[in-house]
């Protein structure tokens, strides 16, 4: 054991000498992060405008705007650090999984009390994260039980408040990135990142946490066990987006992985092939809400998809991390 540790200690500094972190950091920020957030805030702006024009839950325009904005959120949802964590923005954009049914509870109590927080963006932003964001909006647009609660004018005001709050948070993350980009690409005394290694670790951690969340939570929760599958736990199943979230997140993570492995073509190839396989498997499934978890035949293919995500995780943690000299550190999924 000891000679091995010594070898690592001696080789690591030289390995990092060979790799300047700067180009990867700059490339990831300018080509992966900033465009992602810019697409998101554009889509949430459109969503808010659409809801102002037409707040009918069945409105095709509103539903289309919801879908586009949600797509763009999922494509950046693995970037859980810095601006997304200020003022609980990311939590307020997407509170899921909701293991104790907080979202329906929060919405019902808002409606029952005719809570006037819907009239003021500042007040609305003080309310529970469970009653805000894409998952609250999904219930308002797609859950029949919420089509009849309270009266129409209040439901409409609530839908508009939720969309405006989504836009506010998405735009705030986007504009904070204008300055945070510098903190990530120029680590040092004035940055939360002391060194290029720490900045790179943040991005590597985003990749690993994103894969873990998609494999274990987005797929793992509805899969449950063979004897006890849990189709009702699929993410955004009411708007039939569960599988789409898996696919979109894999596409975004593939892009991130390619940038992080840019200096190591062999590893980049391995990762890209593994992502390709997983994305093919996702695209060949015809099961938007993952209800197939309860059907032995269909379930087998969903498990295969999950396995292919685990394969990507294995490549990233055994090849990419050690080669970069970076470890995954601690993430928010640690713990229960």
């Amino acid at each position: 054991m000891r000679p091995l540790v010594l070898a690592v200690a001696l080789t690591l500094p030289f390995a990092s000498h060979a790799q300047d972190r700067g180009p990867i950091l700059t490339d990831t920020v300018t080509a992966h992060i900033l465009p992602g957030y810019s697409r998101l805030s554009e889509a949430t702006g459109l969503l808010t405008e659409t809801a102002q024009r037409d707040c009918d839950p069945g409105s095709p325009d509103l539903r289309a705007a919801y879908n586009t904005a949600f797509d763009n959120w999922i494509s950046v949802s693995h970037l859980r650090f810095g601006p997304s964590e200020v003022d609980d923005r990311a939590f307020a954009l997407a509170f899921w999984p909701d293991t104790k049914g907080f979202t329906p509870k929060a919405l019902s109590s808002m409606i029952a009390a005719k809570d006037t927080a819907v009239e003021s963006p500042a007040e609305f932003s003080e309310t529970s994260i469970a009653g805000r964001g894409f998952f609250a909006l999904e219930l308002m647009l797609f859950e029949p039980a919420f089509a009849t609660q309270g009266d129409m004018p209040y439901r409409c005001a609530l839908v508009r408040a939720i969309t405006a709050d989504i836009d506010r948070n998405a735009s705030a993350i986007g504009s904070d990135w204008d300055t945070y980009a510098k903190a990530l690409t120029q680590p040092g005394e004035t940055s939360p990142y002391r060194s290029g290694d720490e900045a790179l670790q943040e991005l590597y951690k985003a990749l690993m946490t994103g894969l873990e969340f998609t494999g274990d939570t987005r797929l793992g929760r509805p899969l449950g066990t063979f004897d006890r599958p849990r189709p009702k736990r699929a993410e955004a199943r009411r708007s039939a987006r569960s599988l789409r979230h898996v696919e979109l997140s894999l596409i975004a993570l593939r892009d991130l992985a390619a940038r992080l492995s840019a200096d190591h073509p062999d590893i980049a190839d391995d990762l890209d092939r593994a992502f390709g396989k997983a994305i093919d498997r996702a695209q060949s499934l015809d099961d938007p809400s993952l209800s197939g978890v309860a059907d032995p035949q269909a379930r087998f293919r969903i498990e295969a998809l999950q396995q292919s995500i685990n394969d990507i995780r294995a490549i990233a943690s055994t090849e990419l991390g050690p080669t970069l000299g970076i470890s995954a550190g601690f993430n928010s999924l640690d713990g229960d």
Binding site: V5, E212, S327, A328, N331, D334, G335
Partner: peptide, 19 residues
């Protein structure tokens, strides 16, 4: 500290203590 004590490549799963 994990990095300084050179423990980072021991636990590849990082903090996947539950998984």
């Amino acid at each position: 500290i994990v990095i300084t004590l050179k423990l980072d490549q021991i636990n590849f799963e990082g903090s996947d203590s539950l998984d």
